[in-house]
Design a protein around this nucleic acid. Structure first.
Lengths: 145, 145
DNA sequence: CCGCATCCGGTGGGATACTG
DNA sequence: CAGTATCCCACCGGATGCGG
């Protein structure tokens, strides 16, 4: 049943405080990166975060707003994001009951951090693609010989 | 595959109660995010990038430097990073042949971008863990009843 | 309308053994 | 030393169907 609990509960060592937030690459950075990559690196988390940045939405609206997503993954990802504290489930006590999901401040904070990467991607994706094409070309020529 | 932006209509009827404290989420950002997450979201890429930031290393040194990695994944990840232009393979023509892998400027650039996320994680991981613990506690209590 | 449970295929990735 | 090839399984994630 509640498998979401077992998933991604790998607790690494506790690091109380690190003075250097963004300096050089330290041993702990690897842990931090893996941590947040495990949280956000999956297929749908960031997409949901991004959509919800526009305002709280209902379940069915989310399903519509994120095209390719299945109900299963929507539910799962939503629960995961709730657990991590990025998304808040708001249950309106109305006569036709209504449920909305909205970003928490932590979630918004995470999203802005991720947007940094999006910026990098926007600037450099052309270079990456060129490198890939070149690599593939060389590789094909080699196999052809 | 990339029809993220296609079906993005006026789903934003229930508009912001919480103004986002971050940059705005555009339609194209989703694409960029997925792009770079696909490149770097796997298990070992960032770890390798981080290690190589300390200077070029040989294959066997890399295997030693990144604890859990298998030869298969080392080879695979290395090749992928090469393809994307983040890592350069340097084959020294010496009598005992020697092969080194080093970061390209693009790779270093990417790493610094990723370090931004590491910074976020370092600052907020405590909050995340607390939220997780709380969520699990509530959930356990609920299921227990 | 909201959400969970079950079945199932594709694949990421570990262990091992082999080649140049 | 620097990889390549094979086996194999866990698990992510899609499709479907059921319960409140």
């Amino acid at each position: 049943m509640k498998d979401f609990k077992a998933v991604r509960t790998d607790v690494r060592r506790t690091v109380a405080e690190t003075p250097s937030a963004c300096a050089q690459w330290g041993d702990r950075d690897a842990d931090f990166i893996r941590e947040i990559l495990d949280l956000v690196g999956d297929k749908w988390s960031v997409a949901l975060l991004g959509i919800l940045d526009g305002g709280a939405l209902r379940y069915s609206d989310l399903a519509a707003a994120v095209p390719g997503i299945s109900q299963r993954m929507l539910t799962l990802t939503l629960k995961q994001l709730q657990r991590d504290g990025f998304v808040r489930r708001i249950s309106h006590a109305e006569v036709p009951p209504r449920v909305e999901y909205g970003l928490t401040t932590l979630g918004a904070s995470l999203l802005s951090a991720v947007l940094g990467l999006a910026g990098w991607s926007a600037e450099n994706q052309v270079l990456v693609r060129r490198s890939q094409a070149e690599f593939d070309a060389d590789n094909a020529a080699e196999g052809d010989a």
